[in-house]
Amino acid sequence: MKKAIEFKNIKKAYGNKVVIDGLSLSVDKGEFVTIIGSSGCGKTTALKMVNGLIEPTEGDILVDGENIRNKNLTVLRRNIGYAIQGSVLFPHMTVEQNVSYVPNLLNKKDKAKTKSAVSKWLKIVGLDEEMKERYPSELSGGQQQRVGIARALAASPDILLMDEPFGAVDEITRGQLQVELKQIHQKTGITILFVTHDIGEALKLGTKVLVMDKGVIQQFAEPKELLSKPATDFVKQLVERERRTCHLPDDRLNDCEYSGASCAAIKE
């Protein structure tokens, strides 16, 4: 399978403080990788290296097999969707203007194409047409996140980077958004890197989960494997509760002392 993103021996240090050390990793095309770890573990840093917002101190990043050091970062970024936590929609633009931001950067001329792309993506993220004229301040938190996703996807990128995009919404909305994102991933086959601090979310969404601690990879594997064979104590501790979350009918709950593996099976 072709590699979408490769980290080659990445090190990032701010002065003497090493944030990431010896990170090597490759992500296949169409993979949905969730990245989890305690705060300060370097997960956001790793994400921002992919679109060149942060430059590694050592090592190379390859996107579609090309080293991004040799690429025009602006062009690179336009082909990578980027969605981050909280309301980071442009407050002075309508929903439509927000979503068409990147398409407009790419091609200013083809207004009809942009317009139809906006409509398409709004529909996919579950927003009404009539929302187009609204401003971010007139939307609920969940709606804002949906617009954020639509904006990240509007130019039909091959890669989507998401940094805790659902961090600021309520539990119910988050559940809906997770389902929708999963569907979008399945429909489009886009490669997604998704940073989260919620292990449940990481296991539920990812086709692969990357666990990081103190700038070092603890485990990079499918959710099932993470639950059944935690590679380190850190991972074990992380998935401990999830292993014991049993999706069983009431009368069988008693059987469920170490049912992590079966949990994952049900999720699949």
């Binding site: 921002k48 917002l53 602006t74 336009r78 082909n79 980071v88 442009f90 931001y101």
Partner: peptide, 29 residues
């Protein structure tokens, strides 16, 4: 201006000029 918004604009592939005219100036207005 909230630096997060500016980073988002940059991360989406805006050039410095585009950030200036499309984001910074309207927000500073």
């Amino acid at each position: 201006i909230d630096p997060v918004i500016l980073e988002a604009a940059k991360g989406m592939g805006s050039t410095r000029t585009q950030i200036l005219f499309k984001v910074k100036m309207p927000l500073a207005m």
